[in-house]
Design a protein around this nucleic acid. Structure first.
Length: 483
RNA sequence: GGCGCCAUAGCCAAGUGGUAAGGCAAAGGUCUGCAAAACCUUCAUUCCCCAGUUCGAAUCUGGGUGGCGCCUCCA
């Protein structure tokens, strides 16, 4: 088997995945800070790495996937104050909302989803190790990491300490020895959530949690660490400093970072205010269409979010489900043939794309020809023995396509359920009276049976005015709501 | 200012040395009572510009232009 290629931020090139303890692969993905609804940028990360995990498992790796929740943080506290709620109520609510969004997008839960608030002991132990090794120091209830004491600092983001100096920020009231130093532990101000520590009551800094929790669940050294590109510096750089500083061992072997979602050529972000929540988009479009849209661009490239783009993905998704639904009807009770050249090509092209740094656009491209073939077989199966062979091939092809889809987290639903739900939603959006449509459809069927084509066409026009498209099939007329 | 990324058809988007995947849109066709859907065909002698390396470059090197990102919370 050819090796899995992955672009590694640390080395700056594509590398072979060489697991530390094959066939196990440990992956840590930085999860959300739960203080608000998730936006499309979050959708992108978690869809991207959901596909990575699905693919690695398909390749036979035993993946241990850890994705945390940051449930203590300045922004959560601020939000809690605005809402006059305890911070824990805010974080718990947005964890639930996040889970709803992820489920809608077909993002499977990780194997371990640790929360910061459940890992104070591990975090405090790690900070103490850093202090003991001379890499961290306490200062008036805070504890800081001493960046200049860790020789490898900057290796992930390719920065020199002296270049960083100019931009380093010092918050008012901070007691750093060096502007580059960052907080491991923050002394609590009155009214803030706090845990006891050797340095007084306080809470963890942002970066230390990932070092502590990845070590607990994946070990000091592990295979893959991932997140959005914006985490390279300082978050992931700081994690390396903390983890390697404390252990003296290498931290994550390979680092993966996904590109941004942009709107009007700019990064989608909270501070710019140009973000769309996942919930807003999935109210308008099929959640799965958003997933398909996201997978249409390689995970490392920027992707320009637009309604137009998602709408196009949604039409494509309709096609995929309609094709599979057609195949289900046509091949009911048909014995599938053994896999042939089309299935073989599909598997090969899919693997070639995915093995090369998870090239999902390439993988989607590999689906096109087989779907065309599937439609051809189902619509024109021929007669007699020819028909048996056509439908047998269609049956095995549909199976192969579903398996391919499952690797990408696509078209896993029953086509008929998808199509019914979709039609219902579109009909409701248009305020269509489904009973009336069915009545007109029945009238038209009667007119057609009586060869009264003038009346049939008049009824078609009437339905078209309502936004209904008619499809005459060998099994009778079908209808759908035009988009 | 420092560091990094990107530029492929009307639109979206793969492809990182061997002669431009795929999707959308568009045009023609097959099928159909007429349609729709589906299927078939057509659709970049060319990959931002200039120079270079090479038998050969969208792919490598140098220069330019344009855009974006990180350096501060961010996925």
């Amino acid at each position: 088997m050819s090796p899995q290629r992955i672009f590694d931020t640390l080395s700056g090139e594509k590398v072979d995945l060489v697991p530390l303890r094959p066939p196990e692969v440990g992956i840590y993905v930085c999860g959300p800070t739960v203080y608000d609804m998730s936006h499309i940028g979050h959708a992108r990360v978690y869809v991207a790495f959901d596909v990575v995990v699905r693919w690695l498992r398909h390749r036979g790796y035993r993946v241990r996937y850890v994705r945390n929740y940051t449930d203590v943080d300045d922004k959560i506290i601020q939000r809690a104050n605005e809402l006059h709620e305890p911070p824990s109520a805010v974080s718990e609510r947005f964890i639930r909302e996040y889970q709803i969004d992820m489920a809608a997008l077909g993002v499977r839960p990780a194997d371990v989803e640790p929360k910061v608030t459940d890992h104070l002991a591990e975090i405090l132990a790690l900070i103490e190790r850093l202090v003991a090794r001379g890499l961290a120091y306490a200062s008036q209830g805070d504890v800081y990491f001493s960046v200049r004491a860790f020789p490898g600092y900057g290796k992930l983001s390719r920065r020199k300490l002296d270049d960083l100096r100019a931009g380093a920020r010092v918050e008012p009231g901070e007691q750093k020895r060096d502007p580059l130093d960052f907080a491991l532990w923050k002394a609590a101000k009155p009214g803030e959530p706090a845990w006891p520590s050797p340095w007084g009551p306080g809470r963890p800094g942002w970066h230390i949690e990932c070092s502590a929790m990845s070590e607990k669940y994946l070990g000091v050294s592990f295979d893959l660490h991932a997140g959005g590109k914006d985490l390279v510096f300082p978050h992931h750089e700081n994690e390396i400093a903390q983890s390697e500083g404390a252990s003296g061992e290498p931290f994550a072997r390979v680092w993966m970072h996904n590109g941004f979602v942009t709107v009007d050529e700019e990064k989608m972000s909270k501070s710019l205010g140009n973000f769309f929540t996942i919930r807003e988009v999935t109210a308008k479009f099929e959640p799965e269409a958003l997933r398909l849209f996201l997978l249409g661009t390689h995970y490392r490239s920027p992707i320009a979010f637009s309604d137009k783009g998602v709408a196009e993905a949604e039409r494509r998704l309709d096609y995929l489900y309609e094709s599979l639904g057609k195949a289900d009807l046509a091949t009911a009770g048909v014995e599938p043939l053994p896999n042939g050249a089309v299935e073989e090509a599909l598997g090969r092209e899919l693997a070639a794309a995915m093995d090369d740094d998870f090239n999902t656009p390439g993988a989607l491209g590999a689906l096109s020809a087989p779907f065309s073939r599937l439609n051809e077989l189902c619509e024109k199966p021929g007669k007699g023995e020819q028909r048996r062979r056509s439908l047998g091939e269609a049956s095995s092809l549909a199976k192969a396509l579903r398996a391919a889809g499952a690797l990408l987290g696509l078209f896993e639903r029953e086509p008929q359920l998808y199509l019914d739900a979709r039609r219902g939603k579109l009909a409701a959006a248009r305020g269509l009276d489904v009973a009336q449509v069915e009545r007109l459809m029945a009238d038209r069927a009667a007119a057609r049976a009586a060869k009264d084509f003038a009346r049939a066409d008049a009824l078609r026009a009437e339905l078209a005015a309502l936004g209904v498209e008619i499809m005459d099939t060998p099994r009778g007329a079908q209808w759908k709501v035009g988009s």
